[in-house]
Amino acid sequence: MGQILLLPLLVVALLLGNAQAGEELPLFNAEGYRQEHYRSPTPEQAPGAVTVDTAALRQLLERQPDAVLIDVFRSTWRFGQFIEDQPHSNLPDSIWLANTGDGALAPDWERYFTRNLERLSQNRKDAPIVFYCRSDCWLGWNATRRAQAMGYTQLYWYRDGIDGWQQAGLPLHDATPEPFAAP
């Protein structure tokens, strides 16, 4: 009789253990970066940045042609290389720093982001930099916030991203991620 009662308790314990193991990460990590459900409604602003729509971005690019456009859309990374599992297009003259908008960056990815920002900004913390991804995408928000934490001061977040540009009838260009090479 005692064994019959223990069986349901064992099943309940296993189910509870599996539920805990399958839990999702919290939406934000301890540093405040979004780390789950990247394609979902975003806030109006990113910390330390000016949010721009398509018209404002076009004006910014006319006034400051040296502004750096950075696409942070994700790309599959396997076996030490980017795998093109689907074609990707982005705004003209953009640099694609794939996967740098993730909530948590491993040290190699952090160095990739830092090294490319330094190169693209010519080591100027006041260089105009525009981050984007797609509409309703937290990756651009995360990357903008990360650059602000690194001391960059002239940041812009193109919240509507590739989707907004395309909806305005503006051209997109085939893109490949910046190489992930050791320094």
Rank of each mutant, 00 (worst) to 15 (best):
G2E: 11
G2N: 11
Q3P: 07
I4M: 11
I4A: 12
I4T: 14
L5A: 11
L7V: 15
L7K: 10
P8N: 03
P8L: 03
P8H: 03
L10F: 10
V11F: 11
L14G: 14
L15K: 00
L16Y: 11
G17N: 12
E24W: 10
E24L: 15
L25T: 12
P26M: 07
F28Y: 15
E31W: 07
R34F: 02
Q35H: 05
E36I: 07
E36C: 08
R39K: 09
R39V: 11
S40A: 14
S40V: 06
P43A: 03
P43N: 06
P43T: 05
E44F: 04
E44T: 15
E44A: 15
P47W: 04
A49K: 08
T54M: 01
A56K: 05
L57S: 02
L57R: 02
L60M: 08
L60C: 07
L60S: 06
R63E: 15
R63Y: 02
Q64W: 06
Q64L: 11
P65N: 09
D66L: 05
A67P: 02
A67Q: 04
A67S: 13
A67R: 02
D71G: 01
F73I: 05
F73L: 09
S75D: 15
S75M: 14
S75Y: 12
T76N: 10
W77F: 14
R78T: 12
Q81E: 14
I83W: 09
E84V: 12
P87V: 06
P87M: 03
H88W: 13
H88T: 10
S89V: 14
S89K: 12
N90V: 06
L91N: 03
L91P: 01
S94D: 04
W96G: 01
W96Q: 02
L97V: 00
G101L: 10
D102W: 09
D102K: 11
A106N: 12
D108Q: 15
E110W: 08
E110P: 02
F113K: 00
F113V: 05
R115F: 11
E118Y: 05
R119T: 08
L120C: 03
L120D: 02
L120I: 02
S121C: 01
S121D: 01
Q122M: 13
N123T: 02
N123L: 08
N123Y: 06
R124S: 10
R124K: 14
K125L: 12
D126T: 11
A127W: 03
V130M: 01
F131Q: 04
Y132N: 00
Y132C: 00
R134A: 11
S135H: 13
S135N: 13
S135A: 13
D136F: 11
W138S: 09
W138G: 05
W138M: 08
W138P: 03
T144M: 04
R145I: 07
R146M: 09
R146E: 06
A149C: 05
Y152N: 04
L155W: 07
L155F: 07
Y156A: 02
W157M: 03
Y158G: 01
D160E: 15
G161Q: 04
I162H: 12
D163P: 00
D163R: 08
G164N: 06
Q167H: 10
A168T: 03
A168L: 00
L170C: 07
L170M: 08
L170S: 06
P171N: 07
H173R: 14
A175W: 05
T176D: 08
T176W: 04
F180K: 12
A181G: 07
A181E: 13
A181S: 10
A182M: 10
P183Y: 00
